[in-house]
Design a protein around this nucleic acid. Structure first.
Length: 575
RNA sequence: UGGCCUGUAGUUCAAUUGGCAGAACGUCUGACUCUGGAUCAGAAGGUUCUAGGUUCGAUUCCUAGCAGGCCAGCCA
């Protein structure tokens, strides 16, 4: 289940203790008790391959796969590929990758709605023979007009009472390709005065002379969602067909088709989709961000897509824990992004090896350290995990520290380095700042410090204390790296909240990406593969981007560490 | 203005189905610390949408109202 070799014990225990029921699981339990489905549990995740998966889909995958797992059932992955004009193989591939990466295992149960097209066609003929479906010649505009409105009932069209033979003949000719796109549809004959508009003779088949990514040109009529979905579930003997809230109004239709067909009938259950602050979750908008180049692609680390989060460095375990925690409900809600980050940090804190990296280097010369000397100092790989061991870090006369870790005129609460002050270099020595070197513009370009040889390793034999411990790298040994720092993609908690006539894209955060080019990282990360995750001590969690090469290291910042100093600072400035 | 669904700390969810409204995240204190990280301890935070009703007792059941979501694609 884990991708980064983390020990499963801790996380699993948390998940276990956190395990909770929800209304969907309650229904499954009840059905098991009453033996409604002969003790079987079969769930499915049915994505349409018309875009990449996002964190909202992770919630659905987790729910469906989780239920199958917990109740000893089966989990199917099924592509709902009933609309050839929008679907592509690229999406099929990305979706299978993402579902697998998230840890959901469908075994042999990978299906495609398009594999059932023949059966659907046969069922449609059955319905026509029962007098429950008819071919309608009305143009698009006419159909919607005659469907009525929310408050007014629909009116029957002239074709509603065609004979069964005529319908059979017409549907056959639709199938054979005798009619152009949009000229005819097959409709279910239900109830034009139903207060539920979905029941007002919904369209089952439309004519689409389009090539399908799997069936090619075999078909020129394609089934609509409502007609197709229940049949797909029925064929696969799904027990609990879990979908999102907007399909609630479609359940009567789902039930009607299956009842009229007299076939195996799963239970449809609807839950609320996930919303997250500072991002958008609609496929349409995500597509727009990609196509409009507002992001670098579907896997841009700022995107809420699974591939984006993966590239960013989020772990599947963190996403799973998050999904578990947010639960499942029937009312719309928006989860605070901080909750997701909490689970990311929780997982990474336990599993990510520590390393020292300087984002904005400030040169430090240890004036009393011998020229040309190098020492190898012991550093702990992960204080949260003793089994992670230690490593050697080179130390020499010229170092880099973080610019933020020095202030020439520090305020009271600043206890890092400043003139005359002593601090500890992590795992190395205590140093004291003696001189500040500036350029012609008065910019600080270099610090001169002295070190205390007696404090080697980071402890003073005389017991003297320092207030701060800084990270550092040796100038001669450090690796150059590019760091990509991310903030929220949008600057508003709800990006969709815009003034009349404005667009959500105006809420895009102009500072969502900051690229740092001259970062210095300790040499131990040299040959780490792509997607390796580290904690850069005192800075945050970073992962190696696919753009990274041995000569040009590229890291993505997954998340910052909690920073109480930053909090103090903002508290001061906003006062 | 039709129908369906939903309202519990700032946020996301619980409450053994009618029995003292809890947790996590967030916020704020404090302790500890070779990461201003992590960890630990504590605090604040509620008219359970509102009003009636049933009941010894209602977040839970009933009625009415209010608020929000979804539905008039040959999308899913």
């Amino acid at each position: 289940m884990n991708t980064n070799g983390d020990t499963p014990n801790n996380n699993d225990k948390i998940v276990e203790n956190d395990a909770r029921s929800d209304f969907v699981r309650d229904i499954v339990k009840e059905d098991l008790k009453t033996n409604k489905f002969d003790g079987r549990v079969v769930t499915r995740f049915p994505p349409e391959p018309n875009g990449y998966l996002h964190i909202g889909h992770a919630k659905a995958i987790n729910l469906n796969f989780g239920i199958a797992q917990e109740f000893g059932g089966k989990f199917h992955l099924r592509f709902d590929d009933t609309n050839p004009t929008k679907e592509e193989t690229e999406y099929v591939e990305s979706i299978t990758n993402d579902v697998r990466w998230l840890g959901a295992d469908w075994g042999d149960n990978l299906f495609y709605a398009s594999d059932y097209f023949d059966q659907m066609h046969a069922y449609a003929v059955d319905l026509i023979k029962k007098g429950k479906a008819y071919v309608c010649d009305c143009p698009h505009s006419e159909v919607s007009k005659m469907r009525g409105t929310l408050t007014a009932p629909g009116t029957p069209c002239p074709h509603r009472d065609r004979s069964i033979d005529e319908n059979l003949d017409l549907f056959d000719r639709m199938h054979k390709g005798e009619f152009p796109d949009g000229s005819k549809t097959l409709r279910a004959k239900i109830d034009l005065s139903s207060p539920n508009i979905n029941m007002r003779d919904p369209i089952m088949y439309r004519i689409l002379h389009a090539s399908h990514h799997r069936t090619g040109d075999k078909w020129c009529i394609y089934p609509m969602y409502d007609w197709a979905h229940g049949i797909e579930d029925s064929i696969e003997k799904i027990t609990h067909s879990i979908c999102t809230l907007e399909f609630e109004n479609h359940r009567p239709l789902y039930d009607w088709f299956l009842d009229e067909l007299g076939v195996y009938h799963p239970q449809q259950i609807e839950f609320a989709r996930l919303n997250l602050t500072y991002t958008v979750m609609s496929k349409r908008k995500l597509l727009e961000l990609v196509k409009g180049k507002f992001v670098s692609g579907w896997d841009d680390p700022r995107m809420p897509t699974i591939s984006g989060m993966r590239r960013r460095g989020y772990t599947p375990q963190a996403i799973r824990n998050f999904c578990k925690r947010i639960g499942v409900n029937k009312f719309n809600s928006t989860v605070d992004f901080q909750l997701l980050e909490y689970f990311v940090r929780e997982d990474l804190n336990k599993n990510a090896p520590r390393v020292m990296g300087v984002l904005n280097p400030l040169k430090v010369v240890i004036t009393n350290y011998p020229d040309g000397q190098t020492e190898e100092l012991d550093a702990v790989n992960n204080p949260e995990d003793p089994s992670a061991g230690t490593r050697k870090v080179p130390f020499s006369k010229v170092l880099y520290i973080e610019q933020d870790d020095f202030m020439e005129n520090p305020p009271k609460k600043f206890f890092r380095l400043s003139p005359g002050k002593e601090v500890r270099l992590r795992y190395a020595y205590f140093i004291t700042c003696t001189d500040v070197i500036k350029d012609a513009n008065g910019e600080i370009i270099e610090l001169h410090c002295t070190y205390d040889p007696a404090t080697r390793g980071g402890d003073a034999p005389d017991g003297r204390k320092v207030k701060a411990t800084l990270h550092w790298v040796s100038a001669d040994h450090a690796l150059d790296a590019e760091l990509r720092l991310y903030e929220h993609l949008f600057s508003k908690p709800n990006p969709n909240e815009v003034e009349e006539g404005h667009d959500y894209k105006e809420n895009l955060n102009p500072n969502s990406l900051t690229v740092l080019k001259n970062c210095k990282i300790e040499p131990s990360v040299k040959n780490a593969p792509i997607e390796t995750r580290y904690q850069f001590e005192r800075q945050g969690y970073f992962s190696i981007d696919p753009d990274s090469t041995p000569g040009n290291l590229v890291f993505n910042r997954i998340a910052t560490l909690k920073d109480t100093w930053a909090k103090i600072q903002t508290a001061e400035t906003t006062r």
